[in-house]
């Protein structure tokens, strides 16, 4: 019988039991996919689906990642070999936008730092001065669905919202109360810079030593997108040397971060366990929606989450 290999050991297959029961395939969890009988491979963002997949499993026609970002899949190479690639979009837009604005307000008001400070016996003066949210400038890089929700949240708090995205025009931003700027202006003038771009070859290390040096000394950086958008070592240098005031990261170069992750020693940093996407409602949706798409594909129907490209 045809096999579907799930690379994520934590995938909650029981949530899709009804759908799986209708399929004429064996669905199994394994650390790697190999064999002539494998027709589909599904992964979580922590697992990579490489370009040489078909050398081990020549009959795979579908791969998927239960995440919005699909940088863990060799999409172009696999599409060129006739493989349909899936992701799951839009299941956690509110969550990521809200988590981002939570971190922005926590950084500007100093919530984490003041909590640690109080627990260490401090009271006054504060290690860093909390600032007003109203009137602070929020710089959004990447103006897709999530970037736009972050903009709405920032506007609701009276923040001055600016954004940079080469694929979105000025008028689209303006009607949403957002001023379009170039990246230089965004890095140089923002109180908070937040990343909402996909990880692509062109966006890897988008935030590097040069960009960090452009930022204000009292500015903050938030990354709830993908770890490699930021040059991790350069961020550490910037924090250790006071080039910027602080940062919040939900994503890392590798996840989970190792016990000796250097970021845990950097000052003025909020660390999160890749949790921006999470709510009880969103927690199962990427898995169940991807299985639904798998079922559509196997029935010969069009899945919802096909990554554009290929033929």
């Amino acid at each position: 019988m045809r096999r579907v290999v799930i690379l994520d050991p934590l995938w909650p297959l029981e949530e899709s039991a009804d759908v799986l029961a209708t399929l004429d395939v064996v669905v199994e969890k394994a650390a790697a996919a190999s064999g002539d009988d494998v027709v589909a491979v599904l992964a979580a963002p922590e697992q990579r689906i490489a370009a040489d997949l078909l050398e081990h499993a020549p009959n795979v026609r579908l791969v998927g990642t239960c995440s919005t970002g699909y940088d863990n899949i060799a999409v172009a190479e696999l599409q060129a070999q006739g493989v349909t690639c899936l992701h799951v979009a839009g299941y956690c837009d509110d969550e990521v936008a809200e988590h981002t604005i939570t971190l922005a307000s926590a950084l500007l008001r100093g919530v984490h730092q003041l909590d640690r400070f109080t627990r260490a016996g401090g009271w006054w003066p504060f290690p860093r001065e909390p600032r007003r949210l109203r009137g602070s400038r929020l710089g959004i890089i990447g103006f897709g669905r999530i970037g736009r929700l972050v903009a709405a949240q920032g506007n609701a708090l009276g923040m001055e919202v600016i954004a940079a995205d080469e694929f979105v025009d000025e008028a689209t931003m303006r009607v949403l109360g957002v001023e379009q700027v170039d990246l230089d202006t965004l890095f140089e003038t923002s109180d908070v810079v937040t990343l909402h771009a996909p990880l692509l070859p062109s966006t890897r290390n988008l935030v590097n030593a040069r960009r960090l040096a452009q930022m204000r000394e009292d500015a903050y950086l938030i990354n709830c997108a993908r770890g490699p958008l930021v040059d991790h070592a350069a961020l550490g240098d910037a924090l250790l040397h006071g080039v910027i005031a602080g940062a919040a990261i939900d994503v890392y170069p590798s996840e989970p971060p190792p016990a000796d992750e250097p970021a845990f020693g950097w000052p003025n940093l909020i660390v999160q366990p890749h949790s921006a996407w999470y709510s009880p409602a969103a927690s199962l949706a990427p898995y169940t929606r991807q299985i639904d798409d798998l079922a559509r594909f196997l029935r010969g129907e069009q899945p919802d989450g096909v990554i554009p490209g290929g033929s």
Partner: peptide
């Protein structure tokens, strides 16, 4: 206050 409301609901601390 709003930062703390957010911080509680999103669990960031």
């Amino acid at each position: 206050s709003m930062a703390l409301v957010y911080a509680c609901l999103r669990g960031v601390v």
